[in-house]
């Protein structure tokens, strides 16, 4: 328990700072791949800073749920950030919530975000909430199967334990079960973070949008909290994927040298995963909404195969 606060503080600051940067990097990479110049990587910081200093318009029809939602979305995402191993295997709050708590805390944020969308009384919010809850419901079983495959291999649902086991067998990701689970989780990652081909983060067209529709009525600091929270959630899920499947460089303790090395490795891994996402986003068109369940079904089957292959090999 000693040193819990500094550890938690350090990890929290890292998460809060890296999350917008990652969103910026993905935007820039995507623009370059589409032969555009695009915004520079620090644009997300400027957006958030600017939003925090702007005024807010709250819909007349809304209740306190609308105002409480941004806080809940942000706080749950930040708390989850303390539960997963970032640059060391020893996550500050790992003892107090394993992978199930992570998934369900993110679900708590989503629950309120959907309520906030419906609270405005506009159809856009309703469309977004309905689609978000639907897609997450279909994504959840696939996600759990992939997570269970890893948890069963590590003998624990505790993320620090999972990371320690992963570090001790770094090359295990070549095992068929791990590769299948990674493929399953990658599809879920795309769906959960609202990226193409499931949702288009760059559009405000009512026929295609999901996340943007829910937050249409938010402005000023509330919007900043939601956008920041969404980028933290994206970083959390990506970190979860890279550190459970490719645990190279994770420091086993909180020494300065280990941390520095861990940080370098972490950035490299995250950049590779981000490039992979950018590649998928650029080479795929958005799927029709009712095609998304098929994609997620593929993910579910991959997860089931991963599980069966744990059993076989």
């Amino acid at each position: 328990m000693t040193g819990l606060l500094p550890k938690a503080g350090l990890q929290l600051v890292l998460f809060l700072l890296v999350a917008p940067l990652l969103s910026g990097i993905i935007k820039t990479l995507k623009a370059r791949l589409q032969t555009r110049r695009g915004p520079d990587v620090f644009q997300s910081y400027r957006d958030i800073f600017k939003l925090f200093r702007k005024g807010m318009v709250i819909p007349e029809t809304s209740s306190w749920i609308f105002s409480a939602t941004p806080y809940i979305v942000f706080v749950t995402a930040a708390l989850v950030g303390l539960m997963i191993p970032l640059i060391t295997t020893d996550a500050p709050l790992s003892l107090f919530g394993g992978v199930l708590a992570v998934v369900y805390l993110l679900a708590l944020g989503r629950f309120f975000l959907a309520l906030g969308g419906l609270d405005t009384g506009s159809s856009f919010g309703g469309i977004g909430s309905s689609r978000e809850m639907t897609i997450s419901a279909i994504a959840e079983p696939a996600m759990m199967l992939a997570i269970f495959t890893v948890a069963l291999a590590a003998n624990s649902t505790n993320l620090s334990e999972m990371a320690k086991v992963a570090v001790s067998q770094s090359w295990k990701f070549l095992a068929p079960s791990q590769m299948l689970a990674f493929a399953a989780l990658f599809i879920v990652l795309i769906a959960e973070t609202g990226r193409l081909p499931v949702d288009n983060p760059a559009t405000h067209l009512e026929l295609t949008m999901i996340h943007e529709a829910m937050v249409l009525e938010y402005s000023g600091p509330y919007l900043a909290l939601i956008e920041w929270g969404a980028s933290i959630k994206q970083l959390v899920l990506m970190t979860l994927v890279v550190n459970t499947f490719f645990p190279f460089g994770l420091s086993l303790d909180w020494t300065a040298r280990g941390l520095a090395l861990g940080l370098v490795f972490y950035f490299v891994k995250i950049l590779v995963l981000a490039s992979l996402i950018v590649l998928v986003e650029t080479t795929n068109a958005k799927l029709r909404l009712f095609r998304v369940p098929e994609l997620l079904m593929v993910s579910f089957i991959l997860g089931a195969l991963a599980l069966i292959s744990t059993f076989l090999f």
Partner: peptide
């Protein structure tokens, strides 16, 4: 574990229903 994934499905559907 398959039953576990179904539990995840019903959890998420219940959340959708109560939204």
């Amino acid at each position: 574990p398959l039953a576990g994934s179904m539990l995840a499905l019903m959890g998420a559907l219940a959340a959708a229903c109560f939204v």
